[in-house]
Design a protein around this nucleic acid. Structure first.
Length: 431
RNA sequence: GCCGUCGUAGCUCAGUGGUAGAGCACUCGGCUGUUAACCGAGCGGUCACCGGUUCGAAUCCGGUCGACGGCGCCA
């Protein structure tokens, strides 16, 4: 190449270089071969532009003619505005360097879900995955930003842990020098110990669930955004969750408008309405609403997928469901004034269901021990955790959010596996 | 854990008892304005695996494996 200066393809498509001699580098997205002319659609992370290579303009014409899809190239030429070219602009190539002539690319137009998952490492090159992963990056950044701006410190807990947290059958066992430990499924119990020193804290960390959940909303390895704060009351907890979801949504709409429009087929009206306050209903109200709309549910049963779907259909925004009966929620949730209910909530959104689950935490050591025994947990393993209720126990609260579920909801994805680069599900751990 | 669908060429699929097929991809030939280019030719198979029924099985039966979809469980 005569000159080693390159521009982003998006700038060409925006008309910033029309009439000028420029260079680009990228990958061959598609080729069309007309004898003494070759059209290369060239992709970089910002877009796709057509390059026209004529036999009388380029010495290496025969090699260019033989290029296969996903070959990497550097090229330069004049940018011409031309309605015949896809995107309206074309580069008349004067010089081209073949960086690497690719083998036959395994992914073509017709693709099955399975084939794309087997070739996930190559499918990451698609516009679809690029758009999602761009949004995902913004989501992670926005979560950090929200908590830090609100005075929360980032705190890390161990991934290897002896704790079961919410029932032992859902953990991945790991051989720890002949002892059995588990991959963590939550940061929460360690966080409850940390708030006594640090105050308000949060994390974004991997969590692992060994449940064989065969649904479009479950991963065995997912990223878990969790928060824990001393003195925080139940209504403040809901506001914190609401604020975070709104902040992330706003940030994504600002920063990734193009990607979101691509992924949601232009439908961003719903996301633009995501502003406080969200709807708040109690479990009891939810049951009665569902019964009125003809669904078969009894008080005391946990809300199933069809029930959650029905509830999210009724409201134009995410909806909090609060005050569940204690029997269907985790041992660490604080009892409400009505002793049969807990100060816990789920935040439900369309297409995903439960996006966040959280609660005020039980502060009484006696209640905790009682609940652990009821669930046949070995209380000795929890003795360090119970210390948090022995030395200056305080009211506190927190929640956990599935980051992939948030991405799935924002991007309106059919399946959560597309919200993470290399998904892990009960039936897949490759590539 | 439960229910269901599927497995045939590199990819997407057709083929319901009688010699294994198509489109795309790839290779070769043609074409100076293509838009998932087009035209002609070629290459390409352990019909997932094991067993059974039958003169004969991709096809029917039993089992195994794998993937996908849904429920439950959860974030």
């Amino acid at each position: 190449m005569a000159e080693e200066r390159f521009t982003n393809i998006k700038e060409i498509l925006d008309g910033q270089h029309t009439g000028k001699e420029i260079g680009i580098r990228g990958w061959v997205h598609r080729t069309r071969n007309i004898g003494k002319m070759v059209f290369l659609n060239v992709r970089d992370p910002t877009g796709v532009v057509q390059a026209m290579v004529s036999s009388d303009a380029v010495e290496s014409f025969e090699e260019v003619k033989a290029l296969l899809v996903e070959s990497s190239v550097k090229l330069q030429g004049e940018v011409i505005e031309d309605k015949r070219a896809p995107g309206g602009f074309e580069i008349r190539v004067s010089d081209i360097e073949i960086v690497h002539a690719a083998d036959v690319f395994p992914i073509q137009e017709d693709q099955s879900v399975e084939h794309l998952l087997e070739n996930r490492h190559l499918w990451l090159r698609s516009t679809y995955m690029r758009d999602i992963l761009t949004v995902r990056s913004t989501v992670f950044g926005a979560i950090h930003e929200y908590f830090r701006d609100n005075g929360y410190k980032e705190f890390q807990s161990p991934i290897l842990t002896p704790l079961a947290c919410e029932g032992g059958s859902t953990l991945f066992p790991v051989d720890y020098f002949d002892d059995e430990v588990y991959l963590a499924q939550s940061w929460q119990l360690y966080a409850e110990a940390a708030i006594f020193g640090l105050g308000n804290i949060y994390t974004i960390a991997p969590s692992f669930r060994a449940e064989k959940s065969r649904t479009s909303r479950h991963l065995t390895e997912y990223w878990h955004a969790e928060v824990e704060a001393p003195w925080l009351q139940f209504d403040e907890l809901l506001e914190l969750a609401e604020g975070m979801v709104c902040h992330v949504t706003k940030k994504v709409l600002e920063q990734d408008a193009d990607e979101i429009k691509n992924l949601r087929e232009g439908d961003i009206e719903y996301l633009e309405k995501v502003k406080p306050p969200f709807h708040r209903i109690t479990y009891e109200e939810a049951i009665s609403i569902l019964q009125k709309s003809g669904m078969d549910v009894e008080y005391g049963a946990d809300l199933g997928t069809p029930h959650e779907r029905e509830l999210t259909k009724i409201y134009d925004k995410p909806v909090f469901v609060t005050h569940y009966p204690k029997e269907i929620k985790a041992f660490y949730m604080k009892r409400a004034e009505d002793d049969s209910k807990v100060l816990g909530f789920d935040l439900l959104v369309p297409n995903v269901g439960e996006l966040i689950g959280g609660s005020e935490r039980e502060t009484s050591i006696d209640s905790l021990e009682e609940r652990l025994k009821e669930e046949d947990e070995d209380t000795s393993i929890y003795s360090w955790f119970l210390d948090t209720r022995r030395y200056g126990s305080v009211p506190h609260a927190g929640f956990g959010l599935g980051v992939e579920r948030l991405v799935m909801w924002l991007c309106d994805l059919e399946h959560i596996r597309d919200a993470i680069p290399f998904p892990r599900t009960p039936s897949r751990y490759r590539p």
